[in-house]
Design a binder for these strands. Structure first.
Lengths: 193, 193
DNA sequence: AAATAGCATTGATCTATGTCACATTATTTG
DNA sequence: CAAATAATGTGACATAGATCAATGCTATTT
């Protein structure tokens, strides 16, 4: 436990073992079974979660009742509704385990304490959020200019492994198309080969 | 000069006057005329720019030759291609002044120095990027679930002032619809009143 | 004031994707 | 292991918005 976290942190910043030991005390380990929710809409996002094992999805349900997946969080990534976690306002998002998960949870007070005691974590989180922003900007542009097929192609280029772990209708939701459309796109690709 | 910058920084973090004085030395003021470019695609984004006055747009041109506006940067905001600025790789974006602008430019080495000397700026930039991420996530979800009219409505709720300063076809591009569609949407709204 | 260029509007099609309905196939779960 | 449930595939049809093309504005510029 914590090895992956240590590794991921040191990919971006350098901290001493002592500092990491303090950091560890701020987390609470938590197992979350498949289909259980880390966060439900209208609740405040009390934790930011580091994923040691498993896979979660963050999604929103719009006024028409359609689900839209904002993010998949795999091992080594974080899952939370940033906006709610930071402001303490109720979230519009849901975060659900798609597999049995092992998480490391951190509350907002613990997070504040971490940043206060070891300010270099500001840098760590800045870098994480930057990467997330860059990915989200690309998805936004893709939603403007790519066809369903192009979006699907890019996904299998960038995250080939995700396809094996996530049902197709969730891939469709992540791409912003219906499951029927994705099914047809896949059919056409297969037919061409 | 620099008052707006000082104000914006202190909205998010607290720094001493001395620290701010050091910070100031890292910028170079620059006037940029309307229609001139701060960054052209295939160039490395050498500066991150604080906007003291004026208005810029960041946009990308896709394979089909269509422009897509990622962001408008008004007074008090920043403009840059984060990805290129951080990595030093050529940018795919263009940044163009839509009005005569007064900017404060900072190079990557200056930026690194600022973060090294006054680490609390890590926090400042983290908060900025967080806000940007939250807005971008909302736009992504909107692109999945909102009609052209809904997207336009939300824009005039959130940025009523921008409409007076930006030609309609650029608003359309920001929303991810064609100028014709936006024109029709506006016509329908007007007809209903 | 004429001229030129950029913007916005409007109409007539076209098309990718959505919607609805049902069939088929996997995967859970009692 | 069977029944229930969830996921995928396919067909017929509907539609929001794109595309293409012409026309009318409005601002600068000369």
């Amino acid at each position: 436990m914590y090895e992956l976290l240590y590794e991921k942190i040191r990919e971006n910043i350098s901290i001493s073992e002592e500092e990491f030991n303090f950091c560890k005390t701020l987390f609470q380990p938590k197992k979350l079974r498949k289909k259980r929710f880390l966060l439900g809409e209208d609740d405040v996002c009390k934790y930011t979660a580091f994923v040691e094992k498993g896979l979660l999805r963050s999604f929103i349900i719009d006024e028409k009742g359609t689900e839209h997946i904002l993010q998949f969080s795999l091992e080594g990534w974080w899952a939370a509704d940033l906006s709610s976690f930071l402001t303490g306002e109720p979230s519009k998002y849901n975060i659900e385990a798609l597999e049995d998960c092992e998480l490391l949870l951190m509350t907002k007070p613990a997070w504040d304490l971490l940043l206060e005691k070891i300010p270099v974590f500001e840098r760590y989180f800045r870098i994480l959020i930057e990467k997330n922003l860059i990915v989200t900007q690309r998805r936004l542009i893709a939603s403007f200019s790519d066809t369903a097929e192009e979006k699907y192609y890019k996904l299998i280029q960038n995250f080939p492994h995700i396809l094996q772990r996530v049902p197709q209708h969730m891939i469709a939701s992540y791409l912003g198309v219906t499951r029927e459309t994705l099914s047809r796109v896949r059919g056409q690709i297969a037919a061409r080969k």
